[in-house]
Design a protein around this nucleic acid. Structure first.
Lengths: 205, 205
DNA sequence: TTGATATTCAATAGACCACTTGATAGTTTG
DNA sequence: CAAACTATCAAGTGGTCTATTGAATATCAA
């Protein structure tokens, strides 16, 4: 299973699959790799137990293989950001100026009080594959022209793919420059999902 | 960082370092690899941020790089056991007949009540580098001749390197055949340590 | 300084991996 | 049934990684 993480292409595939299941073709287009190459890497990931696959009509739908696989991927990602200055620096450069954050617990409170509006700024397909309960889908590229949908008197919270995804940062910057009160959730859908889904069974061996 | 997990030798080194820091030489002897090879792999692990190193007199002491690194390693190990039937089967064969288990929470209760005796059956150096509070060190190869040290009227709980280490299994089998009431803790020192040490800081990026 | 021990460096041969290309298999649609 | 599409397979090539060897470096003790 360790070898699954040894190739940049496979890491990119895992990162995409952590958001939503996809076909080989869609992954090839998203990563800019050839179909055959992506298919081969997916087979490696499958053999490593990191993804599942399911034939669906004419295409094959790959998905990340449950909590455990997702957990390893997120742990690896966070550890590398936490321990490798190089990664942390690259992340900072890529994300741009940091914007105001909100944590999981505070968001829960405010949603319960009806005090905030939560928007999911990822592409629509990813929202469709799973999202935080109560979130509304407003993909980043539609945000500007759909501003009117958002109440002006409540704070807006945006989330996206995770702490290293620039969508929520950008959304908050645009909202702020439109005069709205906005913050970004400091995690994404995969982290939320992992934290909220009940743990099914403990490793016992 | 992903490449750190791509070589069996490196995984073995990580597994050893998860128990206690060691010198290059000690790791080379423990794994049966040449010094130069182990040194090279350790440098790869160091570059990946998975281990720290510290010169100590004439030797260099390597250690696993904190909570995050330990967390990734354990997550990978558990995921591979949970998702790859092959690994699970190998573990079962290696460990032999399963023995009675006790969980973390129940152990805590019983220790608080003074109702059980906890023994650490790993090699002494590993105990010295860190152990569960209240545990007594009785390495597996000294167990038989030190049986008299253990009270006959209380249950004995043995733990070792982790769920895939055979020491605790074997210890419980020997204790049982000596007429003692014994169980094994279903985790080892690294897991206990990771669960108990307070989380220092959250990833925020 | 010298010698002894522990670790690292440099060079190398062989094994393994990634990506390409072109052909093949499985599924749906006309 | 044929055509279109998606995914997989098989083979080849260039590149990377692993482990070995022997030399170089660092630290300590005499």
């Amino acid at each position: 299973m360790g070898k699954a993480f040894a190739s940049p292409v496979r890491l990119e595939l895992l990162d995409l699959l952590a958001q939503a299941p996809r076909s080989v073709d869609a992954l090839a287009r998203a990563t800019g790799q050839s179909n055959a190459n992506v298919s081969q890497h997916l087979q490696a990931l499958h053999a490593a137990g990191m993804v599942t696959r399911r034939r669906q009509g004419t295409s094959v739908r790959y998905d990340i293989a449950g909590r455990e696989a997702l957990g390893v991927w997120l742990a690896l990602r966070d550890a590398s950001a936490g321990r490798l200055a190089e990664v942390e620096r690259a992340a900072r450069d890529y994300l741009g100026e940091d914007v105001q954050r909100i944590g999981r617990d505070e968001l829960r409170e405010r949603l319960a009080r009806g005090d905030a509006v939560l928007i999911d700024v990822r592409p629509q397909e990813e929202y469709a594959a799973g999202h935080i309960e109560g979130a509304r889908s407003i993909p980043l590229d539609e945000l500007d022209r759909r501003l009117a949908e958002l109440p002006a008197d409540r704070e807006i919270v945006a989330y996206c793919r995770g702490p290293f995804c620039a969508f929520a940062h950008e959304a908050v910057r645009r909202l702020a420059s439109a005069g709205r009160a906005a913050r970004r959730l400091d995690e994404g859908w995969p982290e939320w999902q992992l934290a909220n889904e009940p743990a099914r069974k403990r490793i016992t061996a």
